[in-house]
């Protein structure tokens, strides 16, 4: 049994409105190549539910609450870690075009040999 909210409903509505507008503005000019990584990234962000589940579990008083709270924390932790790992792997596909760590040695060597030969 966690503490019941002490926030007035109107303040909650203010927070919801501002947050909803923020989310809309932040996303509004995304190129379509980033749709899937962004979906995965926002999937990671709503994993913050794990802290709500943790708080509920910390305040559990019965076996049923402990069991459901345990499941909730497990699912939330999976959401966080899975969301991060998947987003990281998706975005790793963008890295070679900037840093080109694996690709450059193979491309540069022939170029240097050509420059060196004449």
């Amino acid at each position: 049994m966690a503490s019941v909210t002490s926030m007035t409903f109107v303040i909650a509505l203010y927070i919801f409105m501002l947050a909803a507008f923020t989310g809309y503005v932040v996303i509004s000019r995304v190129p379509s190549i980033l749709h899937t990584p962004l979906m995965s990234g926002s999937n990671f962000i709503h994993g913050i539910i794990v802290i709500g589940a943790l708080n509920a579990l910390f305040n559990a008083t019965s076996i049923a609450e402990q069991a459901i709270g345990f499941v909730g924390v497990f699912l939330g932790a999976g959401n966080v870690m899975g969301g991060y790992v998947v987003t990281d792997r998706m975005l790793a596909m963008f890295r070679p075009s900037q840093k080109a760590e694996p690709a450059r040695p193979e491309q540069e060597k022939p170029g240097q040999e050509k420059q060196g030969q004449p």
Partner: peptide, 13 residues
């Protein structure tokens, strides 16, 4: 924090 993160994802999603 939950309200903001959740609602940002809700609207951007």
């Amino acid at each position: 924090a939950l309200m903001i993160a959740g609602m940002v994802v809700g609207s951007s999603g």
